[in-house]
């Protein structure tokens, strides 16, 4: 078994007085793709926000590559190589596609701007367009590309194919496979089970701010009861 890269240990998180994360524990190892599943409002987004410092954990610990990062500022955590592609994609509409990439690009990143244009050819075609002029799928691609040039050691993707047309979903899944093949670990939040099945090694299920299930992909695939109980879907 490979070394643990990200360790989230009993993290509690609050929005004002509402206690949203109630002791989340999970880990991501080198080279792994792990999904975080769960119904709307379960706390998936809050979990990655607490990892990236946008919602500092009230108690509990987050360790990355052996360094304790709980309580760090978001930019310090990002500089360590923890890259979050947020739910809303966070594309800067006033900046061109290329500027969106340029402000994120770091020399030490394994991916240059040219490299991400190879993975996402649509972005190169639209490099001079404003971020605000992109379609939803293109925005998602740009958000992922921007994380790649930012020298990530672990990617966190919050519902990357949410609300996109099936052809675009297929395109992005193929691109994610290409990225996974480089060995970079990924923590993926996803509602679409078919997508998870294609990409992930392991799954966590979150409910009411707690991890209620943790299993390998094969265990999970065979476990209709769990899928029904926590996700309320009949998987195929």
């Amino acid at each position: 078994m490979s070394a643990t890269l990200l360790e989230v240990e009993n993290v509690h998180g609050y929005y004002g007085k509402s206690h949203i994360l109630q002791g989340v524990t999970l880990e991501v190892r080198e080279g792994e793709v792990v999904t975080l599943l769960g119904r709307n409002g379960a706390g998936k987004t809050s979990t990655v926000k607490s990892i990236s410092g946008l919602l500092a954990p009230r108690t509990g610990r987050v360790r990355f590559a052996g360094t304790e990062i709980s309580g760090w500022q978001p930019h310090q955590i990002a500089q360590l190589g923890l890259a979050l592609v947020p739910e809303n994609r966070g594309i800067f509409g006033l900046l061109s596609v290329e500027e969106n990439l340029r402000i994120a690009a770091r020399k030490r990143s394994p991916w240059s701007i040219k490299d991400v244009y190879t993975i996402f050819p649509r972005l190169e075609e639209r490099r001079r367009n404003g971020g605000g002029q992109l379609s939803g799928g293109e925005q998602q691609m740009l958000a992922i590309a921007r994380a790649l040039v930012n020298a990530p050691k672990l990617l966190m993707l919050d519902e990357p194919v949410e609300g996109l047309a099936p052809v675009i979903v297929e395109e992005i899944v193929a691109q994610l496979k290409q990225i996974r093949a480089t060995g970079i670990p990924i923590l993926l939040i996803e509602q679409n089970l078919a997508v998870c099945t294609e990409l992930a090694d392991r799954h966590y299920i979150l409910e009411l701010g707690r991890v209620v299930y943790n299993g390998t992909h094969d265990e999970f695939a065979a476990d209709e009861i769990t899928k029904d109980r926590y996700l309320g879907v009949n998987a195929h």
Partner: peptide, 21 residues
Amino acid sequence: GAVVRAGSESTDMVSLLGIDI
């Protein structure tokens, strides 16, 4: 300049890219 324009849209996203806003 690009960071300043980006910051006027979302300071959180600028921080998530490792920039000290």
